[in-house]
Write a protein that binds this DNA or RNA. Sequence first.
DNA 1: CGCAACATTGAGAGCCATCAAGCAAAGTGG
DNA 2: CCACTTTGCTTGATGGCTCTCAATGTTGCG
Lengths: 233, 233
Amino acid sequence: MTSPLHSDSAALCRQTLKSSDLCRGLDERAVDQLLSIGRLRDYRAGAQILCQGSPVDSLFLPVTGSQRVERSGAAGQRQVLAFLQRGDYLGFSTGDHYLYSAYAIEDSQLLNFPVGRFQPLAEQLPPLRDNLGRIANQVLARLIDHLFAIGQKRAHARLAFLLWQLAERNGSADRLLRLPMRRIDIADYLGLTLETTSRAFSRLRDDGVIATPDAQQVHILDHRALIALAEVQ
Amino acid sequence: MTSPLHSDSAALCRQTLKSSDLCRGLDERAVDQLLSIGRLRDYRAGAQILCQGSPVDSLFLPVTGSQRVERSGAAGQRQVLAFLQRGDYLGFSTGDHYLYSAYAIEDSQLLNFPVGRFQPLAEQLPPLRDNLGRIANQVLARLIDHLFAIGQKRAHARLAFLLWQLAERNGSADRLLRLPMRRIDIADYLGLTLETTSRAFSRLRDDGVIATPDAQQVHILDHRALIALAEVQ
DNA sequence: CGCAACATTGAGAGCCATCAAGCAAAGTGG
DNA sequence: CCACTTTGCTTGATGGCTCTCAATGTTGCG
């Protein structure tokens, strides 16, 4: 589960951490302090990273792979809240108990900070504390966008919204997207069924907005149309 | 717009502020400091309190009346994000621009803190700063519940969810709810049309879960059934 | 090759949106 | 005081989008 920090892994960790919003305005020494309390952990595809309702004991920074954040209901329903990858955050801006569960979509590595050691550091490093607030705002903004999409858009527009989100994160110049998650994950993110989601893909393809070389790849052909459907920017 | 602080208004302000989560752990002097930078403002029913996209200049504490927080889309869609009343917060946990608009549902009074004077106070009062984080978490938790409801529940269960939320806020013993908002507001909160919302009321009434003496009042007859539908607790 | 897992497509049903009418309460003016 | 209007809520009829159930196609693996 815990891998020793090979020189390349260590470099990737430091790079990920340093370029994250978490470390904005922090000097080298502070970054090193943070890095020293962090542990890089491996998660196999499908492995649970954290569990909804359990006490918050760690904060996570995805370094490799991709992850899924979700809220589960008693009747077996599931609402996927976010798809994560390098540069995102997990477990920050939550209270004393996790509000959601998280799983590795594919084999992943996450930098793991024990709250017991992270909190004191946040207390003594004002910029770090401020960054926590900034991250909370980003999460809030995303959730509101998400809520708007699910509450007000129809199937193909919801999918357009997700594709736009993914394109935006990878730099909007990137017109070729990789979708490591399964269709059912996308469906539960969008508040749709698997079948309706598949039909939404077909519709965007038929309308010439995207091309799908295979199920895990999406080529954005008409970025303008995608934005119009997603109603963003 | 700005009313002089009558003795009873002032008392209500102080009471509201002091019993809010914002002031948890703050001593009398700190509460007075906060109160001294706050201004009580009146808003007529329908008046705009703050505007989506404009720079954050104030934070608000509802003192009387009820308010509506919403996100608007380019195509005229509207997602109501929250219904507020005394004891809630508005404008906290947002970045430098408001992520939403807010309107008075009925004549309201809100305690108004200019950020320029609030932020320095938060810097010098650690408990206040911590409480801001706590409030952000509450907002986050509510948004996730909301997202789950809209993404995974059907019309009458979504309405049950809202009614449960309102009942919960007024102390769960309260089985008589007042609904100051209009049906269209509820519809836009639940991601439904006005008509479907009305039918959801009818269904809950026909199923014996609620009674509706008039459109602005709901009597909860079967609290157990309401919770089961809302899938909470 | 057979099997398992995942994605797509089809057919039919159901829930919700749309369009429309009816009803009740509050406000206005004669 | 009473038409008349306005506003908001409810109910009905119909259509369409999405869900459900089912079959087929595709890919990867033992």
